[in-house]
Design a protein around this nucleic acid. Structure first.
Lengths: 147, 147
DNA sequence: GCGAATCGTAGGTGCTGCCAACGCTGGGGT
DNA sequence: ACCCCAGCGTTGGCAGCACCTACGATTCGC
């Protein structure tokens, strides 16, 4: 009753965006935590599954993760046996990252988890709303990065 | 050409949401930085302007900021003379936070900055899209917190 | 061949959102 | 009147995401 959010925030699009993203992030993080993972892992695995083995730099570019952060995430994935690092024979600067079968299994698990999280996050939305939201957000992303 | 984002992410609503929120956050942060502030400051000032003086706990509840984070942000605002802390005469546990005239001026400045940031963030959207986005995000927020 | 660019890696920064603990104070129940 | 609980401000800490710099090693373009 007494505790209301100011309309200066409530009507500010960027606040609505970051705030609902925070909710989404919280729910997704919890879901991933149940699988012992975090968002970076999922993003990297998805990139590997979809485009196949690649260097760390390429991986980072495709999944929009800074290459220094890719290092840490891959260390964790490699430690769990989900991914393998091998030197590129054609270019001694690069590593070739390969997803293992355990990694693919893990990715599938994470896909399920993140799918359930979608249900939870977007529960109050109709199918039309969801489609619109996806369209609009895609526009925003396409404008701000070269998607 | 070679560097594409996997559709597993591109078609994942929560990824679109957090990713565009990250863009928005980046732009807003830059704008605020030009005014020597950050989002927490704006949120607290907005709450003070809209609802008047209040205790730190109430302030935190209204602006959705953890009370421990309110302390730090208020320290900074107080250090710049935008806000005043005084003990509540009716309850020795609380402080009463009051916005100063300099604080109101600062808030106005920040409002301008954040307004320009909106233009930049949502540039590719039509008026209809913006209205829809606001509606949809409000639904999400209303569902996940007691807005 | 040489300078520029790329790669992996190591470190660090900032903002956001949390949580635990503490000492103090106020209020409710008995 | 007392005790216990709840609320408050504060400190300190943690994790995740995103970003940046610098470095040695390597490769590429001219």
């Amino acid at each position: 009753m007494d505790e209301q959010t100011p309309t200066a925030l409530t009507q500010l699009p960027s606040w609505l965006l970051t705030q609902s993203a925070a909710q989404a992030h919280r729910i997704v993080t919890e879901s991933f935590a149940a699988g012992g993972a975090r968002a970076y892992h999922f993003r990297l695995l998805a990139t590997l599954v979809e485009f196949g083995a690649a260097s760390q730099a390429t991986l980072g570019r495709r999944s929009c993760i800074d290459r220094s952060d890719v290092v840490a995430a891959l260390n964790e994935l490699e430690g769990d046996g989900y991914v393998e690092r091998s030197p590129d024979p054609t270019d001694a600067r690069r590593n070739i990252i390969t997803i293992t079968t355990a990694g693919k299994r893990h990715y599938k698990r994470l896909t399920n988890l993140v799918g359930k999280a979608q249900e939870e996050i977007f529960a109050p939305l109709s199918a039309t709303d969801r489609a619109r939201l996806t369209t609009i957000l895609t526009k925003i992303l396409g404008y701000h990065q070269d998607l």
